[in-house]
Each structure stands twice: as C-alpha cells, then as structure tokens.
Amino acid sequence: MDDLEALFAEAKSGAMQPSQGLMARVIADAEALQPRPVPLAGPHARSGPQARGGFLAGLAALFGGAGALAGVGSAAVAGLVIGLVQPSAVESMSGMLASTSTTIEQVELIPDVSALLAGE
C-alpha cells in the first residue's frame, strides 16, 4: 500500500498539462459563446434621444415588456379620465361614500332599470 501511495503522490505531482492547442480551442469556444455585456446607463447617458429610448426600454423591461407597459399606461389614462369627467354613476357613488348623511336607500345604483322593476 505504501508503494501505491507513492505512485499516487507521483501522479499527483506530475499533473498533466493541456496542450496549447486545447487551451486555444477552449478559449475560442468561450469567446464564441460568451453573452454580450449589457451596458449600464451612466449619468451622462440620461440626456439625448438615445437615453430617452433607453429609459423607455428599461421601463418596459421593468413592467415585463412593452405590451404590459401599454396595458398599465391605458389603465392609468382611463383612471385619469374617469376622475376628471366624473360620470353621473361615479358621482353618485362617490357622493354617497364621501357624505356622512347619505343613506344607502337614497342612492339609485341602477337608476334606469328601477322603473322596470316596479312594473311600470
């Protein structure tokens, strides 16, 4: 067994060196397969048309793509319009919620069908 340990030690110390050709092939493979670095936007890159494109692209990526960003944008605009225009149904609902004196019986949630329900 001592002889065997000596052989192992000899094998360990005489580690095989790969040929230069192999190292060149391995490095060439690595370079060919290396992902391209993603440039980080520096402070100076925040102005100019390219920077604006980069910001929008980054924002789209944050929301999970341009489609998702468009959906979120549409919802935001719809919310703004509803808030500004204040359709009567919204107005009566918000009036009920905001007012402390209004009771639920006073609010016509579906004003147009009440007549039908009454059989008139």
Binding site: A15, M16, Q17, P18, M23, I27, A30, Q34, P35, P37
Partner: peptide, 22 residues
C-alpha cells in the same frame, strides 16, 4: 464570464482544463 468579462473565461479555463485533462 456570463456578464461579458473577457478575462474570466481565460482564468477559469486555466484552472479547470488541466484537472479535466488529467
């Protein structure tokens, strides 16, 4: 390497390839 560093692959190859060949 995955982040695009050019030197990382070379060093990693020099560490691993001799062991794999052996």
């Amino acid at each position: 390497y995955a982040n695009g560093d050019p030197d990382a692959a070379r060093l990693l190859a020099h560490r691993l390839v001799p062991r794999l060949v052996g």
